[in-house]
Design a protein around this nucleic acid. Structure first.
Lengths: 188, 188
DNA sequence: GCAAATTAATGATTTATTCAAG
DNA sequence: CTTGAATAAATCATTAATTTGC
C-alpha cells in the first residue's frame, strides 16, 4: 500500500471505494478543475509535451492545490492532449486534400448519426483485471498543504530542459510559439 | 529512491549513472540471462500476457536471483513478446498486401524504415483473450530466496485455473500447448 | 423545470510503431 | 539482426453537456 506509483485498474470495474469513509467522494475518474486545466493548457502552450517524471511530479504537486489529482492524471493529460491536437491538425489537412476515401471514421461527429447501439450498458462480462504497472514513482510527496501559490519563486531556472529534448514537432505546428511562461509556471 | 515503480525516460538520452558509485556497471539496457528468458518464456507459454503490478514485482524479484533486473524489464518483456508473437502470426497470414498509401502525414520523420505490414486488424480475433491475470495464483510468497527450484511441490494445485477460463486462444496460437509449468514458477 | 435519453469530451488502457543499443 | 525501451495511435469507458418529452 505504500507505493506512491499508480496502478491501472480494470476497465469495466467501477471500484467505488465508498465502503469505508463515507465521504461521498466519487471514486471515478479524475475530473479536473478549471484552474487545473488552465495551468496544464498553459504548460502545453508553452511547449511542454512529454514532461519528465520530475516535472510530472512537480506539476501534480502544484495542481493538487486546486483539487484532488494524481501524477498519472498529469501524465495522461499530456498524452491525450498531445495526441488530440495532432489528430485535430491531421483532420484539417485531410479535409483540405479531400481524398474522399475516408468515408467512415474520420467524421467530425457533427452529423447526427444515431448509432444504434444497445441501450443498456451491457457491461463487459469479462473482467479483465489488467493492472499494468506503475509508471511513475511518486516518491516523497509530502503534501505541501496550502500556500503554494504564495511562494513566488521568480527564477525561471530549468524550465527549458524539455525543449531541447523534444523539438521534433514538425508539420503539425500551428501553435508552437513559445510564449513567455506565466509566472505561476515557475515552479518547474 | 525507494519507489518500486519505474520511470520512463527520454528516448535518446543515455543516462549513465556512473557518476556515483563507480561500480563499473554498464548502465545500458537490460541484458537478460538465459535463465531469465527461460522463465519468462515459460510464463508466457503458460498463458501470461499482461502481468499485474504484483506479478511483475514477484517475477522481477524472482528473476533477480539470476541477474540484475528491474520491474520495468519484466513489463517491457511481456509487452514486446506479446506484440511480436502477434506480429509474427500476422506476417504469416498476410504476406503481401502493399497498399502503399503513403501520402498520409502521420510520419513526418525518417523514412528509411522498412514499413511493416499494415493490416493491423487482421489478427484481431477474439483478443479479449488472455488477461490471464488474476487467474494466476498470487500467493503471498515472501521471498523464498534460493532453493526455489528444489522445493518440489508436486501438486500442480491451482496452476491451471486459467486453462479453463481461456481456451479461446484461437488462430494466433502456433504454440499454445499448455505444458505443465516448470516448478520454478510456483512462486506466483 | 426536470430527469431520462443521447451525444460529445475526455480520462484511462491497450496495441502498434519507431528508435537505437549490442 | 535481434530486441529492450519509448512514443504514438487506437480503443475503451465514464462523465459532462445537450437534447427531448413530459
Amino acid at each position: 500500500m505504500s507505493s506512491r506509483g499508480f496502478n491501472i485498474k480494470a476497465r469495466g470495474l467501477c471500484n467505488n471505494n465508498n465502503g469505508g469513509g463515507g465521504t461521498g467522494a466519487k471514486c471515478g475518474r479524475w475530473n479536473p478543475t478549471v484552474e487545473q486545466v488552465k495551468l496544464l493548457t498553459d504548460l502545453f502552450k508553452a511547449g511542454l509535451r512529454t514532461p519528465s517524471t520530475d516535472q510530472i511530479q512537480k506539476i501534480s504537486m502544484e495542481l493538487s492545490f486546486y483539487g484532488k489529482i494524481e501524477s498519472k492524471n498529469v501524465f495522461y493529460w499530456f498524452q491525450n492532449h498531445k495526441a488530440r491536437e495532432r489528430q485535430k491538425c491531421r483532420k484539417i489537412s485531410t479535409v483540405k486534400f479531400d481524398h474522399r476515401q475516408d468515408t467512415d471514421l474520420s467524421k467530425p461527429r457533427r452529423d447526427n448519426v444515431r448509432r444504434h447501439q444497445l441501450p443498456a450498458k451491457v457491461c463487459k462480462v469479462e473482467e479483465k483485471m489488467i493492472e499494468t504497472l506503475q509508471l511513475f514513482p511518486l516518491s516523497k510527496v509530502e503534501r505541501v498543504r496550502a500556500n503554494v501559490t504564495a511562494a513566488s519563486h521568480n527564477e525561471y531556472t530549468r524550465e527549458q530542459a524539455y525543449t531541447t529534448a523534444f523539438s521534433t514537432f514538425s508539420t503539425c505546428g500551428a501553435e508552437m510559439e513559445h510564449s513567455p511562461l506565466d509566472l505561476r509556471l515557475s515552479f518547474l
